[in-house]
Simulated scan of single mutants.
Amino acid sequence: MSIRHGLLALLAGGPRYGSRLRTEFEARTGGTWPLNIGQVYTTLGRLERDGMVVQAGADEAGRVLYALTDTGRAELRSWYARPVQRASPPRDELAIKLVLAAGADDIDVREVVEAQRRHVTQALHDHVRHRAEALSRAPEHPEEMARLLVLEQLVFHAEAEVRWLDHCEARLLRRPLARQHPADGREPP
């Protein structure tokens, strides 16, 4: 998700000032995507330049309020209607690390897999705990639903990563051991 579309979505609820947009964005995304206030104001400036938002006066504290324009509403509707493209795989540091470790003579790739598994398992436990807390509050606090959805996505991603690590480990255990070559390049005896 782009910050641009996130801000447009929040402004669909009415005029807001920058720091309120930042606070609401972080609350709605369950705190998983913290924003720098500079990002918010830079993005608002670009949205204003592109005719998607306008300055709509100030609140009682003198903070500039931004409001969605018809162009902004049209862009927001278009964004909601478009599927998220996942055609080209993202550059994933873990995948790159495992590929490079698998080809390195002095690295035990299984140790790399196990270190990542311990890390993601701990993250999974944390996400599940936070999800349980959100579930207990969700019936009384409807705003918890957004946080709950984000936490569930984190749980599913962590579970998928653990499964992928298990797959990688199994594949690595099936591969033949690489022949070690001495530094002079000759085949070992």
Rank of each mutant, 00 (worst) to 15 (best):
I3A: 05
R4F: 01
L8C: 07
L8F: 00
L8P: 06
A9L: 04
L11D: 04
G13I: 06
G13R: 05
G14P: 06
R16A: 12
R16P: 01
T23L: 09
T29Q: 06
G30K: 04
T32D: 11
Q39K: 11
Q39N: 10
Q39V: 09
L47N: 09
E48C: 12
E48N: 11
R49K: 14
R49P: 07
V53E: 10
V54H: 08
Q55S: 13
A56H: 14
G57L: 06
A61V: 10
G62C: 12
L65R: 08
A67Q: 12
D70G: 15
T71P: 02
Y80T: 06
Y80Q: 09
A81V: 05
P83F: 03
A95W: 00
A95H: 00
K97Q: 11
L98I: 12
L100G: 01
G103I: 03
A104Y: 00
V109M: 00
E114R: 07
Q116F: 03
R117E: 09
R118A: 07
L124N: 06
H127Y: 14
H127S: 13
R129C: 02
H130W: 13
R131L: 15
R131P: 02
R131N: 06
R137G: 07
E140K: 13
H141P: 01
P142W: 10
M145F: 14
L148H: 08
L149R: 14
E152D: 14
E152N: 15
H157E: 15
W164G: 11
E169Q: 11
E169W: 03
E169S: 13
L172Y: 08
Q180L: 12
D184E: 07
